[in-house]
């Protein structure tokens, strides 16, 4: 049997914000919010800790160290040639390449990580909660807690346009 969530729709993000505050005060388990545009107040209130920045730092370090290792191997160990009387191992010209490859590696690996984690790939069929989410409606998805009736009352009092109970297919 499919699991059903409580879904409330809002036309106005300020009303949604009010409902969000109300539910959070009562420690209701929220699932997700879908909306046509980003809102910083909602993001601030309902946010999930993302681990992507830490991965980005890690990727940056990996890229930097590996490109340094490659350059060190090629120019010092494998094929040492003296250019213009400079020492075989000279750090300054490596800095630029290290800088650029760090950016490149971080970007590409972060994009791949993000898409892998979010199960996004080219050609994936789009699943949205409702076509109107791309138009003018916010959807607040709430878990069926022990007190679904109470949650519905809270949502209605805060001014939700529509409250329904259906399974989530996104």
């Amino acid at each position: 049997m499919a699991y059903k969530h409580i879904i409330a729709t809002f036309k106005d993000e300020t009303v949604l914000l009010k409902a969000l505050t109300r539910l959070q005060e009562n420690k209701v388990n929220l699932v997700d919010i879908y909306g046509p545009f980003a809102n910083h107040d909602i993001l601030k209130k309902f946010t999930r800790e993302s681990r992507l920045p830490y991965m980005a730092v890690l990727y940056g370090l990996i890229s930097m160290v590996s490109i340094f290792a490659l350059m060190y191997y090629t120019s010092v160990i494998d094929y040492p040639i003296s250019y213009g009387g400079k020492p075989i191992f000279s750090f300054p010209p490596m800095v630029v390449i290290m800088f650029l490859v760090t950016i490149l590696g971080t970007t590409i690996l972060s994009v791949l990580t993000f898409h892998g984690r979010a199960f996004l790939f080219p050609g994936k069929p789009t699943k949205i909660i409702d076509p109107s989410v791309t138009d003018d409606t916010f959807y607040l998805v709430v878990d069926q807690n022990y007190n679904p009736d109470e949650i519905k009352v809270w949502l209605e009092e805060s001014g939700a346009d529509e409250i329904m109970e259906k399974e989530l297919n996104t």
Binding site: G84, G85, K86, P92, P93, V95
Partner: peptide, 12 residues
Amino acid sequence: WFMQFLITWYAN
């Protein structure tokens, strides 16, 4: 800083 330094270092 690095721009000024690298060019000096390279040209020598």
